[in-house]
Amino acid sequence: MTTARIAYLQWPEGLQPEGPAWDAIRRSVETARPDILVTNEMPFGPWLAEHASFDAQAAQRSIALHERALDALSNLGAAAVISSRPVAFNGRLANEAFVLESNAYRMIHHKKYFPQEPGFFEEAWYVRGAGGFDCMQVGQVKVGVLLCTELFFNDRARAYGRDGADLVVTPRATGTSLARWKTAGTMAAIVSGAWFVSSNRHGPGALGQQFGGAGFGVSPQGVLLEETSEETPVRIVTIDLDAARAQKAQYPCYVKEMP
């Protein structure tokens, strides 16, 4: 049996890559020693999209903070880290999914789907940027990434399954209502035949948006795994890669699509 240890989590709103909160995170990850750590979406500093209008100075501060945080992420004690960060693109920002592995940085893709509503004015801040929905080999695990709202486009998870994904991950920044996210994550696992994990922000934003935490996982058969909480902000799941690969031959993964 081929296995990998995957960490999913909830990190606090406004997190800085140094100080007591970060030291506690570092100790917890060093204890867990995961093969892959999946963070929440753009995990450092304030949540920019609470504000309805793009602010170039605030955008630049967030870019600089996430750039500075790359060293801290690399030194967490995980073999690989999957996260996202804001990068400058065409006068605004792109939300860039990436992997850090063996001190090497690889872009995965820029987020493609954005909400535009109170607390989440992402259309005002972000453009679709570059890159497509390609699987990424991370150690021995083939991974597909769906950044937050991308999770609701179920055809993307199905395509990852066809491409042989062992694991689909969703870094997110979402509110306190979890039901739709659990449903979408469960469907992503079922239609891809892959393991699924999602990490989230936690706590109040500057303008009152409440981020709900509750990172969670799902087996390739659609069985929900344990959630994170304030008491247990990091969870580890040992995934069986052989089980994910075998699931590709099971219903509904084998069903042919219309031409």
Rank of each mutant, 00 (worst) to 15 (best):
P12T: 04
W125Q: 07
L37V: 04
P171E: 09
A189C: 12
V38I: 15
A206K: 13
A59Y: 03
Q60R: 12
R128C: 08
G185C: 11
P252N: 01
Q10H: 15
F152K: 07
T238E: 13
Q221A: 15
S28A: 12
Q57R: 08
L225K: 11
A157Q: 09
R85N: 02
L93D: 09
A104G: 00
G203S: 09
P43Y: 06
E226C: 07
L100P: 09
I6S: 07
F54C: 06
G213V: 00
V141K: 02
L70T: 11
N40R: 01
W11R: 10
G217W: 06
W22E: 09
V218L: 00
T2W: 02
G185E: 14
T183Y: 08
E50I: 07
F211I: 13
L15Y: 03
A56T: 08
V141W: 13
R128T: 11
A159P: 00
F44W: 08
H51S: 13
M42G: 08
I6H: 10
K112F: 09
W181Q: 04
A173W: 03
F44M: 10
V255E: 13
A244I: 02
D240H: 11
D166T: 03
L147M: 13
P252M: 02
H110P: 07
S28G: 03
G175Q: 03
Q60A: 14
R92F: 10
